[in-house]
Write a protein that binds this DNA or RNA. Structure first.
Length: 643
DNA sequence: CGCCCGCCTG
DNA sequence: CAGGCGGGCG
């Protein structure tokens, strides 16, 4: 009726927001060197600016070890007793074969925790092992996340850094990103940049691993958290069906209920009032309360199983990292897997103007470059939503640390890592069989990530340790064909990706949907999807912004999107139905900013201008962050459906 | 001209 | 979500 006429009527045809002039603005975020297209397009070499990477391979490891400022109670020395990073005296078997290497490192830690140095009864030490391994992963991740810090293993710097991290959540969002942004190519005089920019060979791999680890850790904790919620007797009187619960926990009152319980106030729709926040803070490591004698046997079993699996996987991840980060030690083992998988998948690119095989340009890698304009963020208080057990660094880094465009070699981290990580996340099947994989055959990987995504596995109550012969690889062909059309699984994946990127370029899409036979049609569809996602997103945000305004909110800065806010729930249920994915904190920041922008704009009456949203879109378009490589996992799309 | 964005409609 | 449309950009 009216609509049509309005639409056509020239006068003030509604609000004809034109696409932002910076059309390619979105690309900006992807192009580390520039914010437009100015100079460097695919300038691979230039991006290796990450401070951490700028140090020679050897010292890289040193840093990993020396920066071991573990969260509370963990003493670096405990983790790495005699192993002195820098010199690495009697070559602490860092490069030792995977499994063993891990053990070697783990033991000391274990001993520290349990004087019962008895390496015999592993069963009873499982917990310690788990913790130890987790601690190690954390420390490594944290270490990698930390600034270059001149080779000062045990200097006081550590302490300072550590504390800083503690406050990580308080640093302003822009403050965290900004630093690296302005950095031109050739290291300016920035202090931290002192380190030479050597060891670029492993740089790429390292960066990716770092990034993936961060992401991985988040997901792991997420899993654990959810797991414990499921098993927690107190968590509503849900029948201990563990498995089934897991699947629904998300939508159902189960989780939300629990959350609500923790935060009764259920603040205003637009978010919780400042100060009154500390989301997961309370139940911190609910997972830590583990073996509480209270857990029903079934739960206990599940708990144990999960712990064991976690331990194993964690251990492997660590090995993987060490191996990649410190190839020298890894001996021949290392072999810079340029990703045969990548090559193999490259063929998926149809003719036309498809980008070159991932092998080089990797628009993806170029991604994550921190938006220069991030400064525009009015966001005063940056949040780190969950000041909980999460190591702040782990949370704040995945999106900024990756910053520099690494990725020169394989855009795909190496089928191996991809696999491991992917499986950890439950994206179990892999179409990339090639992977020269070094994963120990006995690796329980195949089952990993299953706990929640594949209830059946849990239900069977497989024996804790290794793999349950039951469904070994059995289900489904390991080969994922390249789809001609987009499937529901792809849609789901796209939605999750939206949490990282609102304005993906077609190139990026192509690089993340490797199991799809791209065509103009497919590409358009994907782009359309994101367009739709955006539409929904902006509509929601605007709605809440207006609501906040009506409710008398005065300061835009008070607006915040927390995991408890209605807005978040609205968005989450649309992009993350089932709630089986931990929404990256960064998304909350972006959403918060969007909310504030809308709020301010509306309050200022700018909405009178037909294209008042344009500026906002422009801002938001610059906030895309790098999408975890895991999403490239072939089969990921399919697996997602099952969850 | 193709690509993509955003809006609107179904 | 998908179509269709107008529109800006390279």
């Amino acid at each position: 009726m009216i609509p049509y006429q309005l639409q056509g009527s020239p006068p003030v045809s509604r609000r004809k927001e034109d696409p932002m002039d910076g059309r390619r603005v979105p690309e900006q975020g992807r192009d580390p060197a520039t914010s437009g297209h100015g100079q460097g397009l695919k300038t691979e070499p230039c991006f290796q600016r990450d401070p951490l990477l700028s140090s020679p391979g050897a010292s890289l490891v040193s840093q990993l070890l020396s920066h071991t400022v573990v969260s509370r109670s963990l003493d670096p020395c405990t983790l790495f007793p005699s192993s002195r990073p820098v010199g690495l005296p009697q070559g602490y078997e860092l490069g030792a074969p995977p499994a063993e290497g891990a053990q070697a490192l783990a033991l000391p830690r274990t001993r520290a925790l349990a004087p019962v140095s008895g390496a015999g009864d592993r069963e009873s030490l499982s917990d310690e092992h788990l913790r130890a391994k987790r601690a190690r992963v954390e420390s490594i991740i944290q270490g990698m996340s930390l600034p270059p810090t001149p080779q000062a293993p045990g200097t006081g710097v550590e302490g300072g850094v550590g504390q800083d991290r503690e406050k990580g959540g308080e640093m302003s969002w822009e403050g965290r990103r900004k630093p690296r942004v302005p950095q031109p190519q050739r290291g300016a005089g920035v202090a931290g940049r002192g380190a030479p920019s050597g060891g670029s060979p492993h740089a790429a791999g390292c960066q990716q691993l770092k990034e993936q680890l961060c992401f991985l850790e988040q997901q792991l904790r997420w899993l654990q958290e959810r797991f414990s919620q499921v098993c927690d007797p107190g968590d509503t009187a849900q029948p201990l069906g563990g498995a089934e619960l897991a699947g629904k926990a998300g939508d159902r009152p189960g989780r939300d209920g629990a959350a609500a319980a923790r935060r009764p106030h259920k603040a205003a729709p637009w978010g919780s009032s400042p100060g009154a926040d500390g989301p997961e803070g309370t139940q911190e490591d609910e997972g830590m309360q583990e073996d509480t004698g209270g857990l029903p046997s079934v739960a206990r079993v599940l708990s144990q199983a999960l712990k064991h699996e976690l331990a194993g996987v964690t251990s492997r991840v660590v090995d993987s990292v060490l191996t990649s980060v410190w190839p020298k030690a890894a001996g021949h083992l290392l072999q810079q897997h340029p990703g045969p998988g990548a090559a193999a998948r490259g063929e998926h690119f149809p003719a036309g103007k498809c980008r070159k095989p991932l092998a080089k340009s990797s628009p993806v890698g170029a991604l994550g470059s921190p938006p220069p304009e991030a400064a525009s963020l009015p966001s005063g208080n940056s949040l780190d939503p969950h000041g909980s057990s999460f190591s702040p660094t782990a949370l704040r880094n995945p999106h900024q640390a990756h910053g520099v465009g690494y990725t020169l070699g394989s855009a795909v981290p190496s089928a191996q890592e991809g696999r491991l990580l992917g499986q950890l996340l439950g994206y179990g099947h892999w179409g990339s069989p090639p992977a020269p994989q070094r994963c120990p055959p006995e690796a329980p990987d195949p089952h990993w990530g299953a706990p929640r995504l594949r209830p059946s596995a849990v239900r069977q109550q497989r024996c804790p340790l290794p793999l349950g012969p039951g469904e070994a690889e059995g289900d489904g062909a390991p080969f994922t064909p390249t789809h001609e059309a987009l499937t529901p699984g792809h849609l789901k994946k796209a939605k999750l990706m939206f949490f990282f990127t609102r304005y993906p370029s077609s190139a990026l899409l192509r690089s993340y949907f490797l199991d799809v036979q791209f065509s103009r049609c497919i590409t358009s569809q994907l782009i359309k999807w994101f367009s739709n996602f955006r539409e929904f997103y902006y509509i929601q945000v605007e709605k809440f912004a207006r609501q906040a305004l009506l409710e008398g909110v005065a300061d835009a800065g008070a607006l915040r999107v927390s995991r408890d806010s209605e807005l978040f729930r609205a968005l989450n249920t649309h992009y993350n139905k089932g709630n089986d994915f931990q929404v990256p904190g960064r998304f909350l920041e972006v959403a918060s900013l969007t909310l504030r922008e809308f709020f301010s704009a509306v309050r200022a009456g700018k909405d009178a201008d037909p294209s008042w949203k344009k500026p906002i879109y422009k801002i938001i378009s610059k906030l895309d962050s790098h999408i975890p490589e895991v999403f490239k996992a072939v089969g990921c799309s399919q697996e997602l459906l099952r969850s």
